[in-house]
Amino acid sequence: MPLLHNARVVTPTEVLDRAWLRVEDGLITELGTDAPPSTADDVDLGGHTVLPGFVDIHTHGGGGATFTTGDADQARTAAAFHRRHGTTTLLASLVTAPAELMAAATTAYRPLVADGTIAGLHYEGPYLSQARCGAQNPAYLRDPDLDEISGLLDLGGVRMMTIAPERDGALDTIRLLVARGVVAAVGHTDASYEQVGAAIEAGATVGTHVFNGMRPIHHREPGPILALLDAPGVTCEFIADGHHLHDGTLAFAAHAVGAGRAALVTDAMAAAGMSDGEYDLGGQAVTVTDGVARLSVGGSIAGSTLTMDAALRRAVGAGLSIVDAARMAATTPAAALGFPDRGELTVGKRADLVVLDEFLAVRRVMRDGAFQ
């Protein structure tokens, strides 16, 4: 029963100074700011800041390993890399690929879902816009096939799927996903404002890396960005690396939707945490220069080298409060995935937390009540 004390604890509404938490059986069982009871296994956190463990709902890899090939050993390596950066819950994001590869990866990752290494899979594709495909392989983009989707979902472990609502059959696909308990996300889309509105009405509840891979805003045709930002039931992902979004855009969007609808994501690829050089993303060559990943042919930005702790620091640097940034990094994405047991430091929640120093750098990570 460790008791963590001498900490600044960030809750969904405030920062508690000189606070303490008791952890028992993987849960937060007590939280206080008065004098903590003395126990044999006290852990003095030295006045550092404690946030809920980060929840990354969009990542393709990291630490030199990728989720996109279906290799379970690489997936474990990538998950461990992100855990060291404070991410205690993540989805393994696949990219546009043939159905056979998607099925093989889904099957290979079932044991990782079962043991909690990953919280599920995110299919980013293949039912995306040709015009806004970004780093998605255009050779495998296609219209939705309900039989194909049903077969993939039958394999288990799929938690979210990104789809372009203008593709033929997209709305029926969104309804099917929702009926099967899978989060439907809108992204990589050239859809109109009205088409995105129809997708939301059909049950879509997430905007995939909003602003990126989307038709830009025009005052006479607002397109998908404003449709997503203005929809009360939609969680909007933002890649806070300073390359995908200007800090001013990040701050504006977060203020516009509120921390309860804004989710920080990494969209990280294998190069996260690695040196510049040549990498692969879904079978396409990627060149990383000065930490920015781009397709070697065409130059389209290709995921990121971001980690969630760096995203949090970027959000705070853009002017967001630590309380709002913590909600965006943990509470809001956990809610978007339907995980009511985690994402905030309150009694009864899972003891997933990250300890940050005065520079918001990771000092310690706890997952399920155990330091990693």
Rank of each mutant, 00 (worst) to 15 (best):
A199R: 08
A311I: 09
I217D: 00
Y127K: 04
A268N: 05
D44N: 14
A272D: 00
R220Q: 12
N6T: 11
A105D: 01
H188N: 07
P224Q: 10
V196K: 10
G319M: 11
P222E: 09
A184S: 11
A240Q: 05
A270R: 14
R215S: 14
H188A: 05
T66R: 06
A19G: 10
H5N: 10
A231R: 06
G299D: 12
V354R: 07
I118S: 01
G369Y: 08
E278A: 14
R215E: 13
G125C: 10
R294T: 15
V186D: 00
S38A: 14
G70R: 01
L16K: 13
D143H: 12
L4I: 09
C133P: 01
A78V: 02
R327V: 02
D276Q: 12
G291F: 00
M102H: 06
H122P: 03
D172I: 04
S296N: 12
T307V: 13
E24C: 11
G223E: 11
Q195T: 15
P126S: 10
A164Y: 03
A318F: 06
H255Y: 08
M160P: 05
L155W: 10
V292P: 01
L27R: 15
L27N: 01
A80K: 09
E14P: 07
L121F: 11
G258M: 07
G116L: 02
T249A: 15
R83C: 06
L229T: 06
T235D: 02
G53T: 07
L337E: 01
V206K: 03
A199V: 11
T189A: 04
A75C: 13
